[in-house]
């Protein structure tokens, strides 16, 4: 299985309504942090389980789902994780 499919499969545990994974590795070829061999990715995921959670908690859910992939296959991943209705998180940022 290729790495993009593997990432998507691991994230199924979050019950995503939308998921998009982009491999950005080519852009980072040769830079210091890429020497370990892992790839650079961009993820956009929409799932109702993110509703009401802080950004920190949403990202932790994603990292937990990716699990061991974070140790080797993934060097860096930019995460955009949101609930289906963006209003769901708004109360967290108001006085």
């Amino acid at each position: 299985m290729n790495i993009l499919a593997e990432i998507e499969q691991r994230l199924q545990v979050l019950g995503p309504e939308q998921i998009e994974v982009i491999d950005d590795s080519a852009k980072h070829h040769g830079h210091e942090g890429a020497k370990s061999g892992g790839g650079h990715f961009r993820l956009r995921i929409v799932a109702s389980c993110f509703s009401g959670l802080t950004a920190l908690s949403r990202h932790r859910l994603v990292y937990d789902a990716l699990g061991s992939l974070m140790r080797r296959e993934i060097h860096a991943i930019s995460i955009d994780a949101s609930a289906p209705d963006p209003q769901d998180n708004s109360h967290l940022y108001q006085e």
Partner: peptide, 18 residues
Amino acid sequence: PTVPQLYIAGEFVGGSDI
């Protein structure tokens, strides 16, 4: 699992996306 990591007043805040 990733760097950078920001801490404010001893509390972990998050990485660059956050």
